[in-house]
């Protein structure tokens, strides 16, 4: 039987995976993917809390916040990927540490 703890655990694990991706990976595409996983974890916890807050009542405010968050995440991803493509055109690499070295 599923409870709030199940969904929160899933959100927490997704958050840790996204954090690990941001900290440990070097490919810029993968870093943006890590960011997406982080945002998904936050959205999941929002919806889980909104559903389990009161019996038989789904809080619509949290749903609208999550929808806005999704639209913002889409815009952020598009912008990040454009910056990534520009960086690739200039430096011919997607390695974030290589970029740091080339900047000097």
């Amino acid at each position: 039987m599923e409870t709030l703890a199940t969904y929160l655990s899933c959100a927490l694990i997704l958050f840790i995976i996204g954090l690990y991706c941001l900290v440990a990976k070097r490919n810029m595409v993968r870093l943006v993917m890590g960011l997406e996983i982080l945002i998904n974890a936050a959205n999941l916890s929002f919806i889980a809390f909104s559903t389990y807050q009161q019996s038989g009542y789904v809080d619509l405010l949290a749903q609208s916040v999550v929808v806005i968050s999704m639209a913002l995440a889409g815009s952020v991803t598009a912008l990040a990927l454009v910056i990534l493509l520009n960086a690739y055109k200039h430096y011919k690499t997607l390695d974030i540490r290589e970029l740091r070295r080339l900047r000097r």
Binding site: I47, S50, T51, Q63, V66, V67, M70
Partner: peptide
């Protein structure tokens, strides 16, 4: 979880 609108988005 009862949020079909969010699911479609």
């Amino acid at each position: 979880l009862g949020a079909p609108y969010v699911a479609i988005f």
